[in-house]
């Protein structure tokens, strides 16, 4: 069963909150920072996917499909740079196990993730029928 709009947006908020929990611990273990950055990316993933379900009825199942959708739906460009930045940095964290990340990096990336979530939450709320 595909996720609903609400489930995606809750997933986005939960991932952001989870990243904040890791930040609050302020553990200097770079592995914690890497996973906090990864949580930020998945917040963005769910925010965008929630919008795509809400507006286009499309369930995204892969990052490649997401790239294809960016071509078909130019409004996704609104958050593409933030989204791609989060994607690239979390990829570098997960696959290349970069030891260079700091909490200062996290703070910069968190603002990007929050911007993605806020943008698509607003767009979705405006497109939902009022009760």
């Amino acid at each position: 069963m595909p996720l609903t709009v609400e489930q995606h947006l809750k997933g986005a908020r939960d991932n952001l909150a989870f990243a904040d929990q890791l930040r609050a611990v302020a553990n200097q273990d770079v592995c914690v920072i890497r996973w906090a950055i990864t949580a930020l990316f998945y917040s963005a993933v769910h925010a965008v996917r929630g919008y795509l379900v809400a507006r286009h009825g499309v369930t995204v199942i892969s990052h490649q499909q997401m790239r294809d959708l960016e071509r078909d739906h130019p409004e996704l460009m609104k958050t593409k740079v933030d989204y791609d930045q989060l994607k690239q940095q979390s990829h570098t964290a997960r696959y290349y196990l970069s030891n260079r990340f700091t909490w200062a990096d996290f703070d910069v990336l968190r603002s990007r993730a929050e911007r993605v979530l806020r943008h698509w939450s607003i767009v979705v709320s405006k497109s939902q029928p009022r009760p």
């Binding site: 791609d84 990829h91 990096d105």
Partner: peptide, 25 residues
């Protein structure tokens, strides 16, 4: 290591729609 510099790379590379890329330390 400079994620603001990386943002510049990401912004420029986003213009390619058929090139995947990794940022590799």
């Amino acid at each position: 290591h400079d994620i603001e510099r990386d943002a510049q790379i990401v912004e420029r590379m986003s213009q390619f729609d058929q090139v995947d890329y990794d940022l590799v330390p």
